[in-house]
Design a protein around this nucleic acid. Structure first.
Lengths: 245, 245
DNA sequence: TCCTCTATTTGAACGCGTTCAAATAGAGCG
DNA sequence: CGCTCTATTTGAACGCGTTCAAATAGAGGA
C-alpha cells in the first residue's frame, strides 16, 4: 500500500490495475450478453466463459449478478447526465429544458428496454442496493434531483422558493413514473411513452404555473412538508439479516 | 352423479376436490413459513415437507414460488375489500371514507410487511403475473379501482363528473405510492407510514376540492386524457412465451 | 371382478447463482 | 535466487427453484 512499484500500479496508488482490466472485461462482456439475450437468459457461467475467466473470478469483481446491473445503471446514468448538460446549456425555456432532459432519459436507456424491466424489478426490492432509496444509490439519486433542480433554476422562468424547494424531488418521482410506463410500453419505438411524456410535461408545467398563484400557497406548504418527510435520507434503512419480527 | 361420500365431485364437474384440499394445505403451510422465516429463507422443499407432500406435488398446484405470493395477495386483497365495505357502510364523509379505506389497507397487510417487499419486487417485474398491470391481476385491479370509485360516489360529497371519472385510477396510484413508502418504513408500528398517509389524504382532499373550481376545468380535461391513456387495459401486455393456464 | 382413463403424487435430475478452500502470480526484499 | 505477502484466479461443490418421466390412486364402465 505504501508507495510505488512495478508495472501495474495506478497513480491513484490503490490497486494494481491488472484487476481493473479484468473487471472491465467482465462488465463489457456481461452488458453485451444482456443486450443480446436478455438478463435472465444470460448465465454467470456464460459471462465468465465469454470474458475468458472463471466463474469465481467474476464473483471476485462483482458481488452478485445484480451488481452487474448496478454497474450498467451507473453507466446509463452518466450518459444521461452528459446528454442533459448539453440540453441545459442550449435551452433556456423551462418547457424545453424539462422536455429535453426527459427525452434524453428515454433515449439513453432505449437500447436496454427489455432488460430494464429486470432493473426495475430489482430496484423495487427494499433490500437491494439498487433500490433508489438505499444508501448505495444515494449519490446517483442526489445527482438526479440536482439535475432537476438545474432544470428549474437555470432557465429563464422564475419560481417561488417553495416550488424550487419541492420540485426537484417531485420531478424525480415524476420521471420514475414515466420510466415505469416506458417499461410496460410495447408500442413500436416506444412511441406511446414519448407521447405520454410530452403530454405529461405539458400538464406538469401548467400545474407549476398554477401553483405560482399566492392563493395556493397553503397547498405548497403542505406539499413541502410531505416531500420533506419523503426525503429518503431520513428513512431508516432496512437492515436485513438477523431476527424475525 | 355425485358420489354419496360427497367430497369427490364438484358441481361444475371439473375436479375431484381431493386436490383442493392438498392445495389449501400447501398454501397455508407456505404462508405460515413465509411469515415466520421470510420469503427467501423459505424453500420449496421446506414447504413441501411441512405440508407433507413432495416438491413435485407443490408444483402441481402452484406453477412457481411466485404464484404462492399471488395467492397470498389475493387473500389480503379480499380481507381489505371486506374491511373497506364495513368502513364505507359506516362513514359518509369523503375524508372519513378515504382515510378508513387507506387505514384498512395498511392494517390488512401489516402482518406481512417484511415479506411484502418481495411481493413488491416481484410485482415490479413487467413479465410477472403479479404485476399490477398484467392481465392476470386485471380483476383485482378492477376491484380496487371500483373500491375507490365507491369511496367518492357513495359519500355525501358531490364531485364533478370529470373528477369522478379520473379519481378512481388516480387514487389507486396514490395508494400504491403509500404502500411503497410503507414497505420502506422501519419505524415502530410503521407509525411514519400512518402519519404520512393521514397527511397525504388531507392534501388529496384539498386538491380535490381545489379542482372542483370550474376555472380549473382544462386541467381536469388534460388529466383525464392522461389517465385514460394510462389505463392498462389499453397497454399491450408483454406476452409470456407458451400457453395460458 | 378387472380394465381404463384421468387426477394426483413422487423423487431424481437439471441448470442456475453463489461460495470457498486452495492454487497461482507477481512485487518487494534479503 | 528464494522467501513472503497480497492480489488474483480457479473449479468443484452447495442449495436453490424447477422439470419430468414414471408411479400410484381412484372412479366409472365392461
Amino acid at each position: 500500500m505504501t508507495s510505488s512499484a512495478g508495472l501495474l500500479k495506478r497513480e491513484d496508488g490503490k490497486k494494481t490495475g491488472k484487476g481493473e482490466q479484468t473487471r472491465a472485461q467482465i462488465l463489457e462482456t456481461a452488458l453485451d450478453l444482456f443486450r443480446e439475450r436478455g438478463y435472465e437468459e444470460t448465465t454467470m457461467r456464460a459471462i465468465a466463459e465469454s470474458a475468458g475467466v472463471s466463474v469465481g473470478n467474476a464473483y471476485y469483481y462483482f458481488k452478485s449478478k445484480e451488481h452487474l446491473i448496478q454497474a450498467f445503471y451507473a453507466r446509463t446514468h452518466e450518459e444521461h447526465l452528459a446528454a442533459s448538460r448539453e440540453v441545459l446549456l442550449r435551452e433556456r425555456g423551462l418547457r424545453e429544458r424539462l422536455l429535453g432532459v426527459m427525452r434524453a432519459k428515454l433515449d439513453t436507456i432505449a437500447p436496454y428496454r427489455q432488460f430494464s424491466g429486470v432493473l426495475f424489478k430489482t430496484a423495487a426490492d427494499p433490500a437491494s442496493p439498487l433500490n433508489p432509496f438505499s444508501v448505495e444509490s444515494q449519490p446517483v439519486r442526489q445527482q438526479s434531483t440536482d439535475l432537476f433542480a438545474e432544470v428549474i433554476t437555470g432557465g429563464d422562468t422564475r419560481l417561488t422558493p417553495d416550488l424550487v424547494a419541492a420540485l426537484p424531488n417531485l420531478l424525480w418521482v415524476y420521471h420514475m413514473g414515466i420510466i415505469l410506463y416506458w417499461i410496460h410500453d410495447n408500442s413500436p419505438g416506444c412511441a406511446k411513452s414519448y407521447r405520454m411524456m410530452e403530454r405529461s410535461v405539458r400538464l406538469v408545467l401548467r400545474l407549476i404555473s398554477l401553483f405560482q398563484f399566492p392563493l395556493l400557497r397553503p397547498f405548497l406548504k403542505e406539499l413541502l412538508v410531505l416531500v420533506t418527510e419523503l426525503r429518503v435520507d431520513e428513512m431508516p434503512v432496512p437492515l436485513p439479516p438477523p431476527g424475525v419480527e
